[in-house]
Design a protein around this nucleic acid. Structure first.
Ligand code: FES
Ligand code: FES
Lengths: 145, 145
DNA sequence: TTAATAAAGGATAAAAAGGTCTTTATATAC
DNA sequence: GTATATAAAGACCTTTTTATCCTTTATTAA
C-alpha cells in the first residue's frame, strides 16, 4: 500500500497530464490521457468524472470535447485532488489509527508522526496543479511507468 | 485511508501493548490485548500469529501462555512491524504510483515526496518497540480510541 | 492421564477497493 | 434534422482487505 490510494495516484497523474496538455485552451480525451499516464481507461474515466463533478477539473461532451483546466484550476493545490478522492485522513489522521489524533490523548507516535504528516500536507498544499507544466512539456518529468 | 493499513495499525498498537505489559517476563493473552488496543479479537489474533511466525514477537501456547517479547525484540525498530505486515512500499514507493521511484525517471512529486518518505522511514527505524514502555506504564500515552 | 488453557491454522464471509462494460446525454459538424 | 464524437451515468464484476468462527495443536497443572 502506498501513501495514497490507486484512485488518487491515477487521479493526480491524469490531472497533471491534462494540465500541461491543455494550456492552449484545447481539450484532451480519456483515451489519450489513460494511455499517457498508463492507467485502466474506464477506471480513470470514473475518477475524472468524479473530479469533474467536484469542480477540480473541467470537461465538455461531444466532438472536440474532452477534459481541460480553466486558469483558476491550474492554481489549485494538489491537496485538492487528494481530498476529493481520498478525503483528508492522510493529512490529519492518527498514524496508529486512533479514531482521533489529538494532543490530549496522543498515541506513542504522535509527536513525530505529526511532523511527517504536516510536511506532507505542506508539500501538497504549496504545490499547484499547473506548476509542473514546463517540465512536463520538456519531458524532464514523467507520469508513467 | 491512512498511511498504514488497518492490519498494520492494529499490529503496531498490539505490539507496543505487549511490550509494556511483559517487561517482567510474563505473557499476555489475545483477549486482553484486543480489549486494551480496541481491535477485533480474532482479526488481531491472525495478525499476531503472523508477527510471531516472522519472529517480530514471541508466543507460547497453553496455560500461562500468551504473547511476549524477548529483550532483543524490544530493541527492534517499529519499521520491522510495518515491513512484516505492509511490506516496504510505504518507505520506498513512488508517491504517484510509478512502478519504480528513481532519479532517472522522476515523477513531478519525486524531489519533495522523497523527503517526506525518508523522514517517515527515519522515524520508524530510529524508534524502537520498547522505547515507550515507561510512558505507557505511566499512562501518558494511549493505544486506544 | 486427564482436563483446562491458549495460540495456530483453516474455512468462510462481509466490505471496500479496483476495474469493466453498456447505455444515455450532450455537443458539434454536416 | 441526422450522424457522429465524446463524456456521464449506472450496472456489473474481481480482487484485496478486513473480519469471524470453528477445529487442531501445544502446554500446563491437577
Ligand atoms: S494521536 Fe496518533 S498521530 Fe496523533
Ligand atoms: S518517482 Fe515518484 S516519488 Fe520518486
Amino acid at each position: 500500500m502506498g501513501v495514497f490510494s490507486k484512485t488518487c495516484e491515477y487521479g493526480i497523474r491524469a490531472v497533471l497530464y491534462i494540465a500541461h496538455r491543455t494550456t492552449d485552451g484545447s481539450r484532451v480525451g480519456i483515451k489519450e490521457i489513460a494511455a499517457a499516464v498508463d492507467t485502466p481507461e474506464s477506471f480513470l474515466a470514473k475518477i475524472l468524472q468524479d473530479l469533474s463533478r467536484k469542480g477540480v477539473i473541467q470537461s465538455i461532451k461531444g466532438p472536440n470535447g474532452g477534459f481541460f483546466l480553466e486558469t483558476p484550476s491550474l492554481q489549485r493545490p494538489l491537496a485538492d485532488i487528494v481530498k476529493a478522492l481520498d478525503g483528508d485522513e492522510v493529512f490529519s489522521g492518527c498514524g496508529m489509527g486512533l479514531t482521533q489524533c489529538s494532543e490530549k490523548n496522543p498515541c506513542p507516535l504522535h509527536k513525530e508522526f505529526k511532523k511527517v504528516r504536516n510536511q506532507l500536507a505542506h508539500m501538497m498544499t504549496t504545490t499547484t496543479i499547473g506548476q509542473f507544466n514546463k517540465e512536463l512539456l520538456k519531458g524532464t518529468l514523467s507520469l508513467k511507468k
